[in-house]
Simulated scan of single mutants.
Amino acid sequence: MEAFVTTLLLTAIVQTGDRSQLLCAGLAMRFDRRALLIAAVAAASVAGAAIAAIGGQVVGDWISRDALSLFYALSLLFAGLGMLGWRRPVDLLQGWRIGPFFTTLFGVMILQFGDKGQFIVAATAARSHDALWPLLGGATGTVIGLIPGIVWQDELARWPLRPVRIGAGLCIAALGILLALSAFGLV
């Protein structure tokens, strides 16, 4: 259950002001089909979290406990640092003519593939030697993190996302550093 809760919280936080959230806001303005977009986000989140969780569980069987601790710490450190960096502009997929569900499904899957949240899910699955709880936590956290983009679309631009991203990024990076030092036996 710890794997579920930590993965849910971390993946929801790292979505704040992220390109995926902004893509969801743009697609919600374009299509105005909130329930359908949320369903597509849920499907994309489950698929991405499943890939990450299964991969993490496989990796977890191959490496030592200390290496797993370091892998988890680095996933948090890089997620936190990723929240501090500059983001490229979001392509709103205007040229895609495959409907609101599939545009959202594939757009979110592409943006999420190899993203911060997936590494957190993989590292948690590797560390816990369980794919189910990190998968469920990661998928749920991603959906929770992306729904504000769909529901509040244009209001999202007025929210102070940058300070929130910086604060959360610094906290997550600091936690990653602390866990890395612990993995090396320095704390």
Rank of each mutant, 00 (worst) to 15 (best):
M1L: 11
E2F: 15
F4D: 09
F4Y: 12
F4H: 08
T7W: 04
T7E: 04
T11N: 13
T11R: 11
I13K: 11
I13H: 05
V14L: 04
G17W: 10
D18S: 15
S20R: 15
L23W: 04
C24Q: 01
C24H: 02
G26A: 05
L27P: 04
L27H: 07
L27M: 03
L27E: 04
A28W: 03
A28S: 12
D32L: 07
R33P: 00
R33S: 03
A35S: 12
L36W: 06
I38Y: 01
V41D: 00
A42C: 07
S45G: 13
V46R: 14
V46E: 13
A47D: 08
G48F: 03
A53S: 12
A53M: 06
A53Q: 08
A53C: 04
A53L: 07
G56H: 08
G56R: 12
Q57Y: 11
V58L: 14
D61Q: 15
D61M: 13
I63R: 09
R65G: 09
L68F: 05
S69D: 10
F71I: 03
M83P: 01
W86C: 09
R87M: 10
P89D: 01
L92Y: 11
L92H: 12
L93F: 07
L93A: 02
L93D: 06
W96Q: 15
W96C: 06
I98F: 11
P100M: 02
F101I: 02
T104G: 03
L105E: 01
G107K: 08
I110H: 10
F113T: 15
F113M: 14
F113E: 03
G114S: 03
G114R: 13
G114Q: 09
G117H: 07
G117M: 06
Q118G: 03
F119P: 07
A122T: 02
A122Y: 05
T124V: 11
A125T: 02
A126L: 01
A126V: 00
D130E: 14
L132M: 11
P134I: 01
L135Y: 12
L136P: 12
L136G: 04
A139M: 10
G141S: 10
I144Q: 08
P148R: 08
I150L: 06
I150R: 10
V151E: 03
Q153G: 10
Q153R: 15
Q153C: 09
E155P: 12
L156C: 09
A157V: 10
P160G: 07
R162I: 00
P163W: 01
R165D: 01
I166K: 08
I166M: 02
G167Y: 00
A168P: 07
L170S: 06
L170N: 04
L170G: 04
C171N: 11
C171L: 15
I172N: 11
L175D: 09
G176S: 02
I177G: 02
L178F: 13
L178C: 08
L178K: 14
L179H: 06
S182E: 13
G185E: 10
V187P: 13
